[in-house]
Amino acid sequence: MAKPLTKTQLVAALAEEMGADKKAASAALDAITGVITKEVSGGGAVTLPGVGKIYCRERPERMVRNPATGEQIKKEADKVVKMTIAKALKDSVNG
């Protein structure tokens, strides 16, 4: 499996794709990240065309097991960030 791109590598690739300098690409990436974070943390969802949909889902209170001791404990309800991958991306990866 290939190593994931670092932020520096992603900014360089984005700058090349945009035909802009790395400073502008970094600002664009930070802006996109900020918008996604604000929207999802507020309970909304963001769709990235061709990539997928990022959203927040609530998990109910549940019983979990401590793997070290085997003890059952109650875990409070919480939220988790999920992502559904777009069909176009799945199809491009699989063939």
Rank of each mutant, 00 (worst) to 15 (best):
E58I: 06
D78Y: 09
I54A: 10
K7I: 00
K87N: 15
R57Q: 14
G52C: 02
L14C: 04
E39S: 01
A20I: 04
I32N: 09
A88S: 11
Q72R: 08
L10F: 01
V51P: 09
V46D: 04
A13K: 09
G44C: 11
D21G: 14
E58R: 13
P4W: 06
E17A: 01
A68H: 15
T69H: 03
A45C: 13
I32F: 13
V11M: 02
V81G: 10
A13R: 11
Q9P: 03
M63I: 10
D91T: 15
V51F: 15
V35I: 12
K53W: 10
P49F: 05
V81L: 10
T33P: 03
A28M: 07
A68E: 09
V11Y: 00
E16P: 00
K90P: 02
M18G: 09
S41M: 01
V35S: 07
L14H: 01
L10P: 00
T6F: 00
G50V: 03
N94P: 05
D78F: 09
A45W: 06
A68P: 11
K82F: 03
E71T: 08
K7V: 01
T6H: 00
V51W: 13
G50Y: 02
R59W: 13
T69I: 01
L14G: 02
C56L: 13
E58L: 09
T8V: 08
S26P: 01
M63G: 09
R65G: 10
S92V: 04
M83Q: 04
V46G: 05
T33R: 05
K82Y: 07
E58G: 09
V64A: 14
S92N: 11
G34L: 05
G50I: 02
V93Q: 04
P4M: 08
Q9F: 02
I32Y: 11
